[in-house]
Design a protein around this nucleic acid. Structure first.
Lengths: 251, 251
DNA sequence: CAGGATTTTGCAATATTTTGCAGGATTATG
DNA sequence: CATAATCCTGCAAAATATTGCAAAATCCTG
């Protein structure tokens, strides 16, 4: 048997909370053979550490943060309509599209005009669903679903993407800097975006001005490798980009 | 034992509303073993938070402007809660789950308890998203997205599924007949379900009674190949199945 | 080891929350 | 209009929280 001191008990309780179980004061008092008050104090301590949410009768795990993707999707789409329209003008007639994940690309794909015989290839389940609803044929690239960006990654994904060739790759952006180039938050996502670029004849990027000038952790593409950048930035914000080869379209 | 306090109940109720189910005060009073008044107060509280629209006899979901894709994602609509609970009892602790597409399986996965280190493998982008929401690691099987069932199919999918071994496969149902067995609408889906069955140690099926006794186009599995069938059918509906080897759980 | 400080624990008195119930008002339904 | 179901209101009982306090255990120091 363990030491029956606040420290040990609270450790056990914290572990159970992590595991998702609820703490019921009455039961715990019996289990640890202490009074209700003592358990109550333990829970009080856990709450102070932010490890528990106290409720009448015990405690429950801290409410989990919902995924950022679902969050944004359900709470109004903050994607600039002008960006969407400008991008659609470039991709609407493309018969084979390779589409990255992300809120911007998702917003674009949900407004893709219906077209017979279009094929959308994507590592993102969100994009896959949206594209299918717009009547496209969809090829979903398999792999492990990364928590950060919501796209599949991994060796199997990479190898399958290396076997395809498409007209246009539409990439999402974590950071975009004139010198540092396009960057990604995650190492696995970086490889995915690079592979998508290689598989496509031309690479298009649509991004909001807030991403301009920012750098994410992993350098992914040089600006020169990008064929077209579509953004809602002010003219002076894109000055650093002008000497590069990328074509920039302001909306 | 669960905490039966306003906080917990209201959380459950809110979740059901999100799924599109309507709340019936009488039923809930029985389910939670409290008086009608208590449920009424819970609903009152939900209404105050803007999470429910109160109607005579219970409450209905707030009409929320969701994209069609989200709508389908949260459409546990019409799936019998008892089936979900019974299935969860079998799969909650399984560390590696292979999950087919379909509204029933989707409703189940959206209620999967959080568990560290669970891996969900699926050919369905909807399941993938739902599983990720619930904190699971997700491996998405790539391939062409079939329009009928919403799962990926094709040779690449089949070959990748042949390389895996899991504890439990949770399959959806198009038709289920005592003689004809489990059947699928689509030829490609048939192959997928068969492959999923082969990859798993045990095969579980959850289905509503409306599917019982019906045959879809393509015979997929014999009843004897199924380890467990969970359904809300009446006892006399499953008589034809009794001579088979499959274990049947009525809810 | 003695003696004092600190922590932990259980208890009692007092709030607070939650619950079920009784009654009368209101609404659906034939 | 009559009837049944559901709703609102106030209230009292039960469960749980909070607070203050004192006894016990433990730790610390010389």
């Amino acid at each position: 048997m363990n030491l029956n001191i606040p420290d040990t008990r609270q450790q056990v309780l914290a572990q159970r909370l992590d595991q998702g179980s609820q703490l019921i004061a009455q039961e715990l008092a019996l289990e640890f053979d202490v009074s209700l008050d003592t358990i109550r104090r333990d829970i009080l301590a856990l709450e102070a550490e932010g490890k528990a949410r106290r409720v009448r009768g015990g405690a429950v795990p801290i409410a989990k943060p919902v995924s950022p993707m679902l969050e944004r999707l359900s709470s109004g789409h903050g994607v600039n309509q002008a960006i969407i329209d400008a991008t659609l003008a470039h991709v609407s007639d493309v018969p084979t599209l390779l589409v990255d994940g992300g809120t911007t690309t998702l917003a674009i794909i949900t407004q893709l005009p219906k077209l017979d015989q279009r094929l959308v290839i994507t590592p993102s389940p969100w994009i896959a669903i949206a594209a299918q609803e717009r009547g496209s044929d969809v090829h979903l690239l398999g792999g492990s679903l990364s928590t950060s960006g919501g796209i599949t990654t991994g060796n199997t994904t990479l190898s399958s993407i290396n076997d395809i060739a498409v007209d246009v790759a539409l990439l999402g952006v974590c950071g975009l800097d004139a010198d540092f180039g396009l960057s990604a938050d995650d190492h696995a996502e970086m490889h995915m975006k690079q592979a998508m670029h290689r598989a496509a004849n031309s690479t298009i990027i649509a991004t909001e001005k807030s991403k301009l000038g920012t750098k994410a952790r992993h350098r992914t593409l040089h600006i020169a490798q990008i064929d077209l950048i579509i953004t809602d930035a002010n003219p002076d914000m894109i000055k650093p980009f002008e000497q590069s080869l990328a074509k920039i379209e302001l909306v």
